[in-house]
Design a protein around this nucleic acid. Structure first.
Length: 210
DNA sequence: GCGACAG
DNA sequence: ATCTTGTCGC
C-alpha cells in the first residue's frame, strides 16, 4: 500500500476526465454503495427505471476487505466490490450515482470520478459531508436551493438542499457530465428523502441484503 | 507543527 | 463505515 504511488495514479487518471452536458435518453439510472460487515466489503448496485424509479435489478459482490479507509483514497477500498457488482448487472444504466465525491477531491479523483473513468459512462458523486472545496454563505433552506463548491475560483461541485429543513448533500460530477447537469439530475431523482433514490436504495440494500 | 479529513 | 442509548420533532 504505497500512497505516493496511488496519488500518482489519481493524478494520471484525472487527465482522462471529460465534462459534457448529458445527452441522449435516460431510461435507467443506477445507484452504488458499499457496507462492511465484519472484515468484508459488500458492494451493491441497484438499477431503477426512469422516470418511474421502479427497481429493475439489484446486484452485489461480497469480497474480503483489503484496503483501509483513508481520506482521499476511498476508491481503492470500495471500487473492487462495486465494479464486480456493476459487471454482474444484466440491465446497464445510462447514468450512475455513487455515494461519495466526484471531482470535489484534492486530486480531482473521488470515487465517482474513478468509477466513471473505468466504466466510461456518466457518473455523479453524492456525498453526505464535505471532503474538499469551499462555499460562501448558507444554502437556501428550500428544496432545490444550492451554492457552488469551489477551489481556487473554479466550480467543482455544489452543496444542494434536497429537502427543506434537512442538511444539504455535496454533489460533484464524476465523469462525462457537468456540475449543472449533476445538480439537475440529483434533484430529479430525489423524492421525500435526503438522498436521491438510487443511492438511498443502494445504501439500504447494502445493509439489509445479509 | 497543526488542523481537516467522502465512507 | 460500524456500534449503540437516549432524545427531539412532526
Amino acid at each position: 500500500m504505497d500512497l505516493k504511488k496511488l496519488e500518482r495514479l489519481q493524478n494520471r487518471l484525472k487527465d482522462r476526465l471529460t465534462f459534457l452536458p448529458l445527452k441522449g435518453e435516460v431510461s435507467r439510472v443506477a445507484g452504488c454503495d458499499a457496507s462492511f460487515p465484519g472484515g468484508m466489503t459488500l458492494g451493491v448496485c441497484v438499477v431503477l427505471g426512469y422516470p418511474s424509479l421502479d427497481v429493475v435489478e439489484v446486484s452485489y459482490s461480497l469480497l474480503k476487505t483489503h484496503f483501509p479507509y483513508i481520506p482521499t483514497f476511498l476508491s481503492f477500498r470500495e471500487l473492487p466490490s462495486l465494479m464486480q457488482a456493476y459487471r454482474n448487472l444484466k440491465h446497464k444504466p445510462d447514468l450512475i450515482l455513487v455515494d461519495g465525491q466526484g471531482i470535489a477531491h484534492p486530486r480531482g479523483m473521488g470515487i465517482a470520478s474513478h468509477l466513471g473513468i473505468i466504466i466510461g459512462k456518466p457518473v455523479i458523486g453524492v456525498a453526505k459531508s464535505r471532503l474538499f472545496g469551499n462555499f460562501d454563505g448558507d444554502v437556501p433552506d428550500e428544496r432545490g436551493g444550492f451554492v457552488h463548491l469551489k477551489h481556487e475560483g473554479k466550480v467543482i461541485g455544489a452543496v444542494v438542499r434536497t429537502r427543506k429543513g434537512v442538511k444539504p448533500v455535496f454533489v460533484s460530477p464524476g465523469n462525462l457530465i457537468t456540475v449543472e447537469d449533476s445538480v439537475k439530475w440529483v434533484l430529479k431523482l430525489t423524492g421525500r428523502y435526503r438522498l436521491p433514490e438510487p443511492v438511498r436504495i443502494a445504501d439500504r440494500y447494502s445493509r439489509t441484503l445479509l
